[in-house]
Design a protein around this nucleic acid. Structure first.
Length: 204
DNA sequence: CAATAGATCATCT
DNA sequence: GATGATCTATTGC
């Protein structure tokens, strides 16, 4: 079985938890800065290698473009919360809310590099044969980390789902492309990924 | 390799 | 009643 790349102690250091101010900025900035950060849920954790920014009501590809509804309430709420939605009758997708309260804007987490609890991730994703396939897509990573709609609206600064930075240096180049799988605003350059990572979704 | 179909349901028209 | 911020297996070069 594969050895985990980081220990629990490295991920539980108090100084590494991202604060509210990290999220309380324009969604594009938050998206770029999410690359290289660590999503932690229970015993599993993964390094963010691919994200997309979704903007406010002017971004027709964003759920928030429909205005305030039952589903989008979290998007218009305070920053630093989890927006988890169900899609295609099959999958759940994880977002972080950004911007100030009242303004929609979020970051879709599209791919993780597994760093902790890899055995658990494998058991949750029995169809994934290679490490690279464990969390290399929005639906895959929620399954690998055990993230469901029960976490929708949860506080990332306090709750069971957390986002952390690493203490050591983590240098990488950022690649920018259009977003994947959308019809509207299909040419907006709002997808960010770590160049050269083997853990990103689809085609680099 | 690339293209496509099937799975399956919350949300909004 | 149609659609969708997807994944997987299968088919066809």
């Amino acid at each position: 079985m594969q050895e985990d790349r980081f220990t629990r102690e490295q991920l539980e250091d108090r100084s590494t938890l991202l604060r509210r101010s990290f999220y309380s900025r324009p969604a594009i900035e938050v998206a770029r800065d999410c690359l290289g950060k660590i999503v932690v849920h229970g015993e599993t954790a993964g390094r963010i290698v691919e994200v997309e920014a979704y903007l406010g009501i002017d971004d027709l590809a964003a759920h928030a473009s429909r205005g305030l509804t039952d589903r989008t309430r979290v998007l218009f709420g305070p920053p630093g919360h989890a927006y988890v939605y169900f899609i295609y009758g099959m999958h759940e997708c994880l977002n972080f809310t950004a911007e100030k309260t009242g303004t929609a804007g979020s970051v879709l987490i599209r791919a993780l590099e597994p760093v902790c609890g890899i055995a658990t991730m494998r058991s949750r994703r029995p169809k994934a044969r290679r490490m690279e396939d464990l969390a290399s897509g929005p639906g895959k990573l929620t399954m690998a980390l055990g993230i469901t709609r029960a976490l929708n609206g949860g506080d990332l600064v306090k709750g069971p789902l957390q986002v952390r930075k690493l203490k050591r240096d983590d240098e990488f180049a950022i690649k920018v492309t259009p977003r994947v799988g959308i019809k509207h605003c299909a040419d907006w350059p709002l997808r960010f990924l770590i160049e050269g990572s083997r853990f990103v979704s689809g085609i680099h």
